[in-house]
Amino acid sequence: MASHAIVQSDVEFFWLSFIAYSAACLLYVVFLAVGRKKISFAATGLMGIGLVLQTMAIILRSVAAHHLPLTNMFEYISLFAWFAAILYFVSLKVYRMQIIGAFISPVIFMLMASASLLPKDMSIRLMPALHSYWLQIHVSVAALGESAFVVGFAANIMYFIKKALPQDSAFGNRMPDLKKLDLVSYKAVTVGYPLFTIGALFAGAIWAEQAWGTFWSWDPKEVGSLIVWLVYTAYLHARLVRGWVGTRAIVLSSIGFLCTLLTFFANLVLGGLHAYG
């Protein structure tokens, strides 16, 4: 009964954090329209509250389940949103651009909304293949890498919007300049790419070797991750060696992010060895 009570409260904290993130998202939209600094401060504050509440939810769930909550799509997507929120605050510390929140918070909102629709049952009993510490390493490092791609994508969206707006529009002036957005987008990829390579591809391959007896089996999710890696690899080469900056580079990295999203949900549609929940 005691563990049941904790389960309840972890989902409650999830809903509370979802509400805080949604409110933050709403305030950011208002900020984009009105441009008052105070509103963006309030929105960032709400994001922070959401992050704290979600951290509570994750801790409670870990305690109740006796393992990190990484074992079904609800847990994975909320973790993804949690990392994205953390990376927003990291980028805030580095770039001091609260406005990035206006573009990350909708992504977090969408992630939390899709997580909220999924079954939230806790699996205390894992299937035998998941009995491995590689579960923690593989899933959390991959999710951290993918959340960095989310931050990059938020910068890409801002880039496209700023580019489409007429010069000297009040709205456009509220946004950072194109060069800076391009740089944020690139930086996010340089943070995400090594994490994704090590977490999704290598840790996954090592674990697969232990559990399934093969490093690589061309499972749909494996190929999906390979595609993500190939696209971002092309992006990095185009940028670093051939000097792609601006729109061309932003388009390529956005394709990378769309592949990430497709791969992220691929196991729900295509099945394969990653169809665990």
Partner: peptide, 13 residues
């Protein structure tokens, strides 16, 4: 080559 391998992988999925 990266683009071609990506496209082929895509069909493979």
């Amino acid at each position: 080559l990266l683009i071609i391998i990506t496209a082929v992988s895509f069909f493979g999925v």
